[in-house]
Every structure is written in C-alpha cells, then in structure tokens.
Design a protein around this nucleic acid. Structure first.
Lengths: 132, 132
DNA sequence: TACATAATGTTATAATATAACATTAATTAA
DNA sequence: TTAATTAATGTTATATTATAACATTATGTA
C-alpha cells in the first residue's frame, strides 16, 4: 500500500482539472480554468504543478510544455516516465511496459553515472492518424 | 557516406557557437553571442535552430530548453536521441549505446503505434558531483 | 504553546518562442 | 538563361511559458 498523499486546496483543484482533461493541458490553460475558483496568478498554478510532479500525481510532457495525470494507478513512479506522442493529433499516452522500465532503470552508461530518473518520449502517428 | 549538408550563413554561425560551447546553450544566450555578427532577432536564431535540429546537427535538451551539437560523428540520428543529465552541475552528455538504440527503435507499444522518433533523458549525478 | 515547514496571495518581470509580412538568395524546371 | 519555386533572411511586434521577491496564513511537530 502506498502512502496516500493529501493534497492542499490549490493542489487538489489543479489536479482535478488535469485529471478530467484526459489530454495534456498547459499551465496557462489550467490557469484560465481555475480563475472562477479564485486562483488568479500563474505562480499559484506553477507551484501546485511543481508539487504534483514531485509526488508523481502528474507528469510533465517536456516536449510539449504540458501536463497529464499519472495513469499508472497510484504508483509513485514519477522517476520513470515514458510517453507516446502522436505528431499529428498530439494525443499523448503514458506507456507502462514492465520490460521497458526494467531495462531503462538498470541502464548504466559508460561514464558510470548513476541515474535516479528518466523521461522517454516516443513520437510517431497514432493508429487513427496513420490511416488518414 | 552520408550526404554532407551545406549550411546557410546564419545556420553556420549558430552551429559554430553551439559546437564550441561544449555544453548545452540556450537560444537567447546564442542570440547574445551572435549579435556582433549581425544576427539581431530571436527569430533568426530560432529558425536556424529549427533547421539544425531537423537535419540532426544539433539536438534540443527538452527538459532544459537548450541545445547541444550532435556528438554521434556526422550520423543523422536526430530521430533517436538519448542524454544523461547531471542534476547538480547540469552537465549533459549524449549517450551513444548501440544496444539501447536498437532496443528503443524496435520498441512497439500496445496501441500499435509506429514510432518514427524518440528522445530519452536520464537524470542523476555525474561522477564528480556524486563524490561531493 | 512555540517553532518549523509548507502553502498561499500578489505584483512585477524574466525567459522562451512564434506570428505576420516584406525581401533576397538559391535551386530547379521549362 | 529566364521563370518559377523553394529556402533563407530581416524586422517589428507580440504570444507563451516561467520565476523572483516579499508578505501572509495554515499545518505539522517538538
């Protein structure tokens, strides 16, 4: 059983938006969505985002500057993330492939660097878009 | 033998800066560096960067919004990039590991998406920083 | 309680990136 | 070798993404 993180007010509001979005969402789009709830400033959003990323509830899609909820049901693997990104429709999905993560977690490079974390982004065309 | 790309004036100027830098360099830092050479506007830099990324002469470190010259001597694998990033000193190096790239190139996810490209960023402490 | 740590609120501003339009250079096809 | 096409450049303005700095309030812990 993993430690259930209790979110603060702003963190919860912002997490809910991201989770409902079902697609990557950008910080300023989140800001727009939460203005009716009293969150007015970018920094309030970014602070919540930072925390949510830190505890693994959401991930940042670096190549898109956008955020998605973690789909690996409750697991805290914010340290090992992999995504597939459709370059046509921009659909993003989190990859959870045990072999892949094992392989990458154990990867050691020649410089002897010890890794704590990785992020992998695959690009291509999703099924729908590759038919078009 | 791979096709030798001839760079335009701006592309060459900007590529030279990045190659000399030996560490990731940001777009506006490049801009500052090339102002004496007549390149005055961000867009001039970004356009050259886009092209250089496209032809694989440089890569973008997405998590850092910075750019490095490709170290895989002349090869055009801008489609398959992997880096190790030290979270302390921010040293970045390009990983060229045949096994790793073969593994990732052949990776197929469950949704049957066909990948054309990937980018992998490992994070940790480099040798120097892990001693401190 | 009191001390420490985390979260919030707010204003201003920094850093990163692109839109839109005009012009010039290089390539290619007739 | 000209005309047509495509690639690159120049320029101004502006959009987008992200953080600094400082004051305050809430929460957790000794």
């Amino acid at each position: 059983m993993d430690k259930q993180q209790i979110l603060s007010k702003n963190q919860q509001i912002i997490f809910d938006i991201i989770e409902k979005a079902k697609e990557p969402i950008k910080a300023y789009s989140i800001l727009f969505n939460v203005q009716k709830k009293g969150i007015k400033a970018p920094l309030q959003v970014y602070r919540a985002l930072d925390k949510l990323v830190e505890i693994g509830k959401i991930h940042k899609i670096e190549s898109r500057n956008s955020f998605v909820a973690c789909k690996n049901s409750n697991c805290q693997i914010s340290k090992a993330t992999a995504f597939s990104i459709c370059e046509s429709c921009e659909e993003v999905s989190e990859i959870s492939d045990n072999k892949l993560s094992k392989y990458l977690e154990s990867f050691q490079n020649k410089a002897g660097m010890k890794f704590k974390k990785y992020n992998l982004e695959f690009f291509g065309l999703c099924k729908k878009c590759s038919v078009k």
